[in-house]
């Protein structure tokens, strides 16, 4: 050190570390809670392909581009792709998970508001990536 005392810097670094520890702990805790899938969640298979989404319900019915679910139910998405990577995203419900070739990724949600919500692709997938949209319809 060049002679002068450095205690303000140490205090400053200490404050940053405390703040980061707080952010980290909080994030860890929230993530732990939101990743816990309820046992009764109904499985919906989500298949991405250039440039649309297909949904397959537990009873075998399929939908393309639209997804109908019931308010107050929990659903578990099993997401995959037929070609390149995509990302399945319902922004209003903070549902975001990549559709990765060769894998099945999981994420769950329980809609609590009826109505229509946009579904979109959030991972670049080529020509019409911007238009790889769908609609979530939450029924009473």
């Amino acid at each position: 050190m060049s002679g002068h005392s450095n205690w303000p810097e140490w205090i400053y670094v200490g404050v940053i570390i405390v703040l980061l520890a707080y952010v980290g702990a909080e994030a860890w805790n929230v993530e732990r809670l939101v990743e816990h899938v309820p046992a009764e969640a109904e499985v919906i298979k989500v298949i991405g392909q250039q440039w649309f989404w297909t949904f397959e319900h537990a009873d075998g019915t399929k939908e393309v581009g639209e997804l109908h679910v019931k308010k107050g139910h929990a659903y578990k998405f099993e997401i995959t792709t037929k070609d390149v990577n995509h990302a399945f995203n319902i922004h209003d419900y903070v549902v975001l998970q990549d559709a990765v070739a060769g894998r099945v990724n999981e994420v769950w949600f329980a809609p609590d508001k009826a109505g229509e919500f946009p579904i979109q692709c959030r991972e670049y997938c080529g020509l019409l990536h911007y238009n790889m949209r769908g609609t979530l319809i939450v029924e009473e």
Partner: peptide, 22 residues
């Protein structure tokens, strides 16, 4: 994070990221 990493992996890389901030 969104590629389907496990909770543990995500936690490790979050800590690693925060470590760069000070």
């Amino acid at each position: 994070y969104a590629t389907g990493m496990s909770f543990t992996e995500k936690t490790v890389f979050m800590i690693g990221t925060l470590a760069a901030v000070p």
